[in-house]
């Protein structure tokens, strides 16, 4: 614990900013029902498109205004932080697990297994992610769970590539060779010897991936194949508010800024983590 604090206190200014924002973000997401001024589904058609407090006709009741259904924008922003975070983290985790497992297998066993996994990677790369994601959403139906799964199974490639390359180099290290020589089982070697030495990279990639996934979810929603509009995510709020961009600009600007700051802080933290923990990863995206 002491070490963590030490590292953080020595971090760059941007990383500190990122960490603070992320901490706030997580707190808001967890406490959403407590701090949100209204109920998430409070629809009040009579109050639709009320401007935020700082505009001429704005009221203090809806500090950030209301949307086209009269829902409080601040409330949706707060709940949206939660769903967006879930989408980013869970989808990232799904991708990470698939990618790390495949990367480990491919790198460790090599040969035919490696060839198969490498072709899978080639196929995934030759298949624009947005395309595959849209197809999968069309096949599975649009729901929060499906979007997370889809982002996960389209997002494993960078993990697999990175981990595979690292396993290849770690495999040649003395301690692994030694374990092999004394006849340790493969699974044991993979989990006890190799995994710990590559897990850092996976986690750093994962941090970056959270931001990527949040943005990807927003793009999918924009294209009409994302999360159903009744669920509040930041991407969803922008996508659904864009028809009102001329007369109710706050509907897109406010979640847009939230998304920007959120991803900004994730990237700051990710960059910093990478610099501190694993300079090898520079240049991997």
């Amino acid at each position: 614990m002491k070490n963590v604090w030490k590292t953080i206190s020595r971090s760059t200014r941007t990383a500190k900013f990122g960490l603070v924002v992320m901490a706030l973000w997580i707190i808001v997401a967890v406490l959403a029902p407590v701090i949100a001024p209204y109920d998430i589904n409070d629809i009040d058609i009579a109050q639709r498109l009320a401007p935020p407090a700082w505009e001429k006709k704005g009221t203090i009741e809806h500090v950030l205004g209301t949307d086209q259904l009269g829902r409080d924008v601040l409330t949706r922003l707060i709940y949206g932080s939660r769903i967006s975070l879930i989408v980013g983290i869970v989808a990232g985790a799904v991708g990470m697990v698939i990618g790390v497992v495949l990367g480990l297998i491919a790198g460790y066993f090599g040969g035919a297994v490696d060839a198969i996994i490498s072709r899978m990677i080639d196929v995934m790369l030759a298949f624009p992610f947005i395309f595959l994601a849209m197809l999968l959403v069309a096949a599975l139906g649009s729901s929060l769970g499906n979007v997370i799964i889809v982002l996960g199974i389209t997002g494993w490639v960078p993990y697999a590539r990175t981990i595979r390359a690292q396993v290849l180099s770690v495999k040649e290290k003395e301690f692994v060779k030694a374990a092999n020589a004394i006849g340790c089982r493969d699974l044991r070697i993979i989990f006890k010897q190799i995994l710990p030495s590559v897990v850092d990279s996976a986690i750093i990639l994962g941090t970056m991936d959270v931001g990527t996934n949040i943005l990807a979810e927003a793009s999918l929603t924009f294209l009409g194949l994302g999360i159903p509009p009744s669920i509040a995510t930041w991407g969803n709020m922008i996508a659904n508010g864009r028809d009102y961009i001329f007369n109710a600009g706050w509907l897109t600007t406010i979640p847009g800024i939230a998304l920007l700051i959120g991803c900004l802080s994730i990237n700051f933290v990710g960059d910093w983590l990478r610099d501190v923990r694993d300079p090898r990863l520079r240049g991997v995206d």
């Binding site: 941007t14 931001g211 943005l215 927003a218 793009s219 924009f222 991407g235 922008i238 996508a239 864009r242 961009i245 001329f246 600009g249 897109t252 847009g256 998304l259 920007l260 959120g262 991803c263 900004l264 994730i266 990237n267 700051f268 960059d271």
Partner: peptide, 26 residues
């Protein structure tokens, strides 16, 4: 440059594009 880089990676393309239309065109 670093700030610009992180911004570029953090902004949703469709929002950025709509904003440009609003500002430079309208």
């Amino acid at each position: 440059v670093t700030t610009f880089v992180v911004m570029g990676r953090s902004i949703p393309t469709f929002w950025f594009a709509s904003l440009m239309v609003l500002i430079f065109s309208v």
